[in-house]
């Protein structure tokens, strides 16, 4: 079947009755996009509110951004989030990459069980992770006396890593499954040791997925609210938990300002992910699948 003959003919025929429904679909699509962006745009606009309360706009100004630097609770919360995100992303990427490579290249009977576990981890509602981690960390830290589990950063990193490990494993596995293993076989035939093959062939092949997983894990961690609000200890409050607690006492424009800043950081990380995947030759549907967490 030649593609030119099929692309030439139909559009002419379909133009005749296409417009009504297709135009409605386009209108629908644009409306949905407006709906999706409405609250985000509102938050960005209201971050320039100089009033005392977030929801009543008084005048346009940068006061709330200045408050990010003058209010230490707020800047501390952002720093806690960035530090946790960095550590959690590295950890999840390390564990997830190894697991993903194993799933793609050395699947055994264990692989089905392991995939089952990963799916279970990723579909478990966050509230369940949160309420089960809290007693467990208290048990490890206080009943068993392992004092590292009383540390705020350790607790947050553990809580944030679970979902990310699953996501990184999926992404790395999906990438390697799509690439035949013959390069690795060639490397082994040329007497490279397994470790050398791993380092020089497998890992570079998986690299775009590893980088994407790293950045995705970082943004997952920045966004994590529910688990964080359970496992955090005072003194290491990440920014979404700070926002959650501010909710009870009336929201101020600084909340919108810190949200805008975090949004920019997240978008920058995601733009890099998309760029990495695009350069690795993924289609936009593949990128969507990867960025939606597998």
């Amino acid at each position: 079947m030649s593609t030119s003959s099929t692309t030439d003919a139909p559009p002419v025929i379909h133009r005749l009755r296409k417009p009504v429904i297709d135009r409605l679909l386009t209108v629908w699509g644009v409306l949905v996009l407006v709906f999706l962006f409405a609250p985000i745009i509102v938050i960005v606009i209201y971050s320039f509110n100089t009033g005392r309360l977030l929801s009543s706009f008084e005048a346009f100004g940068l006061d709330s951004f200045a408050a990010l630097f003058s209010k230490h609770v707020l800047s501390d919360a952002v720093m806690v989030s960035l530090r946790t995100g960095f550590i959690a992303a590295l950890l999840a990427t390390l564990l997830g990459t190894l697991a993903g490579i194993a799933l793609a290249r050395r699947p055994g009977r264990w692989a089905a069980w392991f995939m089952g576990l990963l799916i279970l981890v990723s579909v478990t509602p966050e509230i369940v992770d949160a309420i089960s981690l809290l007693p467990w960390l208290v048990f490890l830290g206080q009943d068993l006396g392992l004092s590292m589990f009383n540390d705020g950063t350790v607790r947050l990193v553990i809580g944030h890593s679970l979902f990310s490990v699953a996501v990184v494993s999926y992404i790395v596995r999906a990438r390697l499954v799509g690439l035949p293993a013959n390069l690795e076989e060639a490397s082994a035939d040329l007497y490279a040791s397994p470790l050398r093959t791993f380092r020089r062939v497998t890992l570079p092949l998986a690299m775009p997925a590893v980088l994407a997983g790293l950045l995705l894990s970082f943004t997952f961690s920045l966004d994590n609210t529910i688990v964080s609000s359970f496992v955090q200890v005072s003194g290491s409050t990440p920014w979404p938990v700070y926002v959650l607690s501010a909710l009870r006492g009336g929201l101020r424009p600084e909340i919108a300002a810190v949200s805008t800043v975090m949004l920019l950081i997240t978008l920058a990380a995601l733009a890099v992910v998309a760029l990495v995947l695009r350069r690795a030759g993924d289609s936009s549907a593949q990128i969507a699948r990867t960025m939606a967490g597998g």
Binding site: I43, L54, V243, S259, T266
Partner: peptide, 9 residues
Amino acid sequence: WTNFLVRTI
């Protein structure tokens, strides 16, 4: 990718 809580606010 925007924080869940922020969108709701």
